[in-house]
Design a protein around this nucleic acid. Sequence first.
DNA 1: AAAACGGGGCA
DNA 2: TGCCCAGTTTT
Length: 356
Amino acid sequence: MTKEIKKIDPGQWAQLLLHWFYANRRDLPWRTVPRDPYKVWVSEIMLQQTKVEAVRPYYESWMDRFPTVQALAAASEDDVLRQWQGLGYYSRARNLHDAVCEVQREYGGKVPDTLAGMRSLKGVGDYTAGAVLSIAYKKPVPAVDGNVLRIFARLYVIEDNILSAKVKKSVTALAAEQVPPDAPGDFNEALMDLGATVCIPKHPRCDACPLQKRCGARALGKETELPVRLTRKHVPVEEITVVAVAGGQRWLLHRRPSKGLLASMWEFPNAVGAGEAGLEAVQRLVQDLGLSVAIDDQPIGTLRHVFSHKIWQMTIYTAECTGGTLETKEDWQWLDRSCYTDVPWAGPHGKITAMV
DNA sequence: AAAACGGGGCA
DNA sequence: TGCCCAGTTTT
């Protein structure tokens, strides 16, 4: 008897999963009947690295504002960023806008129904292309995301780091073997739901799992040890000095560069550094604009903002503009206090409006 | 292969 | 605090 192999190979299990899905699937706003490729696409982009409950209100508001490819293609980038404000990973919004404009221009407004066509769009990787193709167009392709990697690592007892390219490749091959040709979208969504509600990271609810009898990790009592993930490195802390410069009823604002962290979003004048050095750096920044300012000695508060790869430790000061004229520049502006919702704020800078 | 890129929820 | 989440792009 080849007991070892039998334990690790769960065989064909797609039907078991589908039966569970049809009785337990979540009711989500983008799961319309029939499925709209644009809505599936937008939801998949919003859901990248983001929980369903965080996405829901953004998705609803987005569809009110940009219900179709045509509506989104006609919008300005600032409009798009404002709608995305607070959801994070802002390149997703810019890429989606770019990609939708291309679909409007090059595909007559119809979302591509081929893997190559989808994959060529900005912000669409292997996962999103597979999800849109299978869910909206019923193409029998896999869609491998974090949920699928976790589920497969347990089902097939994969002990390697699931974030490696090697594991992603082998899981993609295993998933492709399981995709039922008559219900590929249901299969892929079933994996999402199973991963989100049953085969969860910390303490999987194996008693509720339709695949418990097929699961290698379960059989070996290793369900809480898998999957293996790469440990994160230490994240550096960056000291930031922020100065809210008031000119009458207006604030002086700077637009961040078009590439990099919080690209193209608006912030209060600031510089890297703490204490005297930080204040002098901001003072120079403002002087170079042709303005003179009087900065208050005592900070009005501090703010700690955690990104996935760095931390901003911010100290906030207030200041009054005492003279000079702002040179005409694209990336600087005076904004009336009553208009603070009119700009896309660079992360924590939006919170500073409440402090000053 | 590793880093960059947000933000919120939970133990 | 540290981990995790329906990833993609850049280095």
